[in-house]
Write a protein that binds this DNA or RNA. Structure first.
Length: 587
RNA sequence: GUCUCCGUAGCGCAGUGGACAGCGCGCCGGAUUACGAAUCCGGAGAUCGCAGGUUCGAAUCCUGCCGGAGACGCCA
């Protein structure tokens, strides 16, 4: 790890041990980025307090800082150390060290990012659309954010299990199957719009269920047959699942989401595990009957009147619900998949549900210190009225329409800005698709996942400032230099030198890529990576404006700048790839 | 009533307990016959919702309030 923050942390800790004794060796040296130097070590201020108690007399933090500096051995990487303010130790890195570490990033296939020393098996549950329902903008965030989390964990060497917990089971399937019979199974097989238009199909089934008692009766009997595993019913159910899966896959393919059919473990997958799960909870004394339903009462959860709040595990009619499925899922992941971490990339409204399910799982011994489960909350997407967008509300923006609109706007922007007249129609279409999709994806990835926002097409398809296209444009400009110079990025080997302030800032930024990825993985927050990539692109454009590459004053400088371009290009491309934002070669 | 998230410049958002709170959009003023201006440089713009507390130090941690969104027994 070449991040100077970590290199210096070890050095300062060594100085603390040398100055104050071995018991100080693992103190937090409080290294932080600084506006007065590259980094500052702030450990002297809290330490003065601690030493005061130990030495029995008042300690001046500046004097403590001086003691640390006296024992600090950093001459190989730090050019200047000075104590300022109440006791800050300002550390200015040497240009040679930065250049050398940047050279190391360039030479490393993994850009200086180590694989995790403690790899985990991690389930990332995301997307999770419902069968026979069209995906809307609300699904977009969970799908995009979850996919980026999975990509980042993958890159860091974790064993990632992508899990698409599709809603493919439950009472609605009675009416859906009966409606399928009315429309005709052959309509599904030839992908007729009466079935493939999922919204219309669902609404037609719902309308009949609500208005035709005979149909509703058939639907209810069909639910029973489905849960009993009736062969003909299962066949019809499978047809519905297949139609929807085909539709999901078209969306995933267009979005560049890495989910495949093999990642689908829908609610139906756990059907046979429900009864044994419930039996185990009963055997452990966790589940008790209350008001006719089998419930668990995890401590600390209370309802409106202060009464204990239940997790309903088996309804009074004997059926199971989604809590049961989620409990069976956790049990399966622990017993069968042997995972250490579960990340639920699911909407914020389900926070209480997951808290309670996790609490019950801890009571059952499925979750604990060795196996963690966390709800990576996705903030609500709100309509212009400030209310949460819902499928049943009608009039919500469909995903496909949003993407079409984004690509159309990208086309207009392209026609306005593009200046490469060697690009033909086919490549233009490819570029415009990547810009439009990239803009939408980056818009969702660049803000904290748990904050809600009002759905705004202009926000998602903006191509100026901190946007996907800005980042794509940065990579395109780098590639353009190599194309114009007749050099391949792979052949730009340096050595990297750091002279101009913009070169220095860019090289320094390259060194912190790995730290950012680790933080993004730890917190399951891809926006940290998005922010980094944007900062890197900004550093690059500043470099680009100030430091001519092909017209560099001398050959050594040119080779160094080409190498900086190459390292930046690969870091940007890798970062964007981990976000799932596509990068065209030209635009 | 319990719980979750949010409140930072006109708007949209970042911000590891560290010095003077940043970025984007918008606004004002500059830069281009190009290593690609979907860019860059400069400027104006802030009581970090309010009040306490902890701390050498708080946008950040704790408590309470105010405001917004959401969840809360047999849908998922």
């Amino acid at each position: 790890m070449s991040d100077p923050q970590f290199v210096l942390a070890a050095r300062v800790q060594a100085a603390l041990a040398a100055a104050f004794g071995p018991s100080y060796a693992d103190s937090d040296p409080v290294i932080r980025p600084s506006q007065f130097a590259d980094l500052q070590a702030n450990v002297a201020l809290p330490l003065a307090k601690k030493l005061q108690a130990e030495r029995g007399e008042k300690q001046n933090p500046r004097a403590v800082a001086q003691e640390i500096v006296d024992h600090l051995e950093v001459s190989d990487l730090v050019a200047n150390v000075e104590i300022s303010g109440p006791g800050f130790i300002n550390l200015t890195l040497s240009d040679a060290w930065i250049a050398g570490e940047a050279q190391g990033v360039l030479a490393d296939a993994r850009l200086g990012v180590p694989r995790s020393g403690a790899p985990q098996r991690v389930v990332v549950e995301y997307s999770s659309p419902n069968v026979a329902k069209e995906m809307h903008v609300g699904h977009l965030r969970t799908t995009i954010v979850g996919d980026s989390i999975a990509r980042i964990l993958d890159f860091l060497g974790h064993d990632v299990i992508r899990d698409n917990h599709v809603g493919d089971w439950g009472t609605p399937f009675g009416m859906l199957i009966e409606h399928l019979l009315d429309v005709g199974v052959d309509a599904a097989e030839r992908d007729d719009s009466s079935v493939s238009d999922l919204t219309a199909f669902y609404q037609a089934a719902r309308a009949k269920f609500d208005s035709e008692p005979a149909f509703a009766g058939r639907a209810r009997r069909r639910v029973v047959a489905l849960q009993a595993g009736d062969a003909e019913t299962m066949r019809l159910w499978q047809i519905l699942v297949d139609v929807s899966t085909r539709y999901f896959n078209t969306v995933y393919e267009r979005l560049g989401v890495t989910l495949t059919d093999a990642d689908i473990k829908g609610e139906s997958f756990y059907n046979d595990a429900l009864a044994p799960t419930v039996a185990e909870l009963e055997a452990k004394g966790i589940a008790v009957v209350s008001e006719g339903a089998l419930c668990a009462f995890p401590p600390g959860f209370t309802g409106r009147e202060g009464e204990p709040l239940p997790v309903i595990i088996r309804k009074s009619d004997g059926g199971y619900n989604y809590s049961t499925t989620d409990l069976a899922t956790i049990r399966y992941r622990v017993d069968t998949e042997d995972v250490q971490r579960m990340i639920y990339v699911v909407g914020a409204p389900q926070a209480l549900h997951f808290q309670m399910v996790f609490a019950v799982s801890r009571m059952a011994g499925w979750l604990g210190d060795e196996v963690r489960a966390e709800h990576a909350q996705i903030g609500n997407v709100l309509g212009v009225d400030g209310k949460i967008l819902r499928t049943r509300a009608g009039g919500t923006v469909k995903l496909a329409e949003l993407l079409d609109e984004a690509v159309e706007r990208a086309g207009r922007a392209y026609d306005e800005h593009a200046r490469d007249d060697t690009i033909d129609g086919a490549e233009r279409a490819d570029i415009v698709e990547k810009v439009g999709i990239g803009a939408v994806k980056y818009a969702d990835l660049s803000v904290s996942r748990d904050s809600e926002y009002i759905f705004d097409l202009d926000r998602m398809t903006s191509f100026k400032g901190n946007t996907g296209p800005y980042l794509q444009y940065a990579t395109v400009r780098i590639r353009s230099i190599f194309r114009k110079g007749g050099v391949s990025p792979d052949d730009a080997l340096g050595p990297i030198l750091v002279a101009h302030e913009a070169e220095r800032a860019l090289a320094l930024r390259l060194l912190t890529f790995g730290t950012v990825l680790e933080q993004a993985a730890e917190t399951a927050e891809p926006h940290r990576l998005a922010n980094y990539v944007f900062e890197l692109a900004q550093d690059y454009t500043t470099f680009f404006e100030n430091c001519p590459v092909l017209k560099a004053p001398d050959e050594t400088t040119k080779q160094s700048r080409l190498a900086l371009c190459a390292a930046t290009l690969r870091t940007l491309s890798t970062g964007l790839d981990l976000l799932g934002v596509p990068t065209p070669e030209r635009m």
